[in-house]
Simulated scan of single mutants.
Amino acid sequence: MLPPTDEPYQVAQTQPVDAVWHAVLQIIEPNTAASKETAGHYVHHRPILTKAMQDGTAITYTHAALREPSYRVDLEFWGGEARSCCPPNPPHPGK
């Protein structure tokens, strides 16, 4: 279940995935290369807490987005509710 293609949405992570994401962010060169390979550009860490994360919609879209290109979704890590490592609308440096 993905939203209509013209409707933007946020993918979300669970707490275990967020912990790994933060560890990976600290390994700059491989993280930059992986970001460019998978997303086409560097993926910045701009944590937010959206309504979709709070109501569970974001994790549903995330699971669907991960399955779309036939990625294996390991529910040991991806099962559960979406989490943000920050409070709603945290300040972003430089903005």
Rank of each mutant, 00 (worst) to 15 (best):
Y61D: 07
G80F: 00
D74M: 00
R72A: 13
Y61F: 12
A52G: 06
H92I: 13
Q13S: 13
Y71V: 10
G79F: 07
I27D: 15
T32M: 14
P3R: 06
E81W: 02
R46Y: 12
V11M: 15
Y42R: 06
H63W: 00
D55Q: 15
A12M: 05
A34R: 01
I48A: 13
Q26F: 08
A39Y: 07
E76A: 08
S35V: 01
H22C: 12
R46Q: 09
R67I: 12
N31R: 09
A65W: 06
C85T: 13
G80I: 03
Y71Q: 10
V11D: 02
T38F: 15
T32R: 06
P93Y: 02
A58P: 07
R46K: 15
H63S: 08
Y9W: 06
P91R: 03
Y42L: 11
A58S: 04
E29G: 11
H63E: 09
L25G: 15
Q10V: 09
M53E: 00
I48Q: 14
H44P: 04
E37H: 07
P16D: 05
S35W: 01
G94F: 05
V24I: 10
T14F: 04
W78F: 10
P4S: 00
Q15D: 05
A34T: 13
A82N: 01
P16F: 00
E37N: 10
V24N: 01
G94N: 04
Q54K: 15
T62L: 00
P87D: 14
T14M: 04
A19D: 01
T57Y: 08
A82H: 01
P47L: 07
A82G: 05
E81Y: 12
P90L: 04
A64S: 05
V11Y: 03
G56P: 15
D6H: 13
S84A: 13
S70M: 12
V17A: 03
A82M: 02
V20Q: 14
E76R: 12
I28F: 12
T38N: 09
C86Q: 12
D55Y: 05
S70Q: 02
A39Q: 12
W21S: 04
A23S: 11
H41Y: 07
L25A: 10
R83M: 10
Q13N: 11
K51H: 13
A23N: 08
T14D: 01
G94C: 13
P87F: 00
G56I: 05
A19M: 07
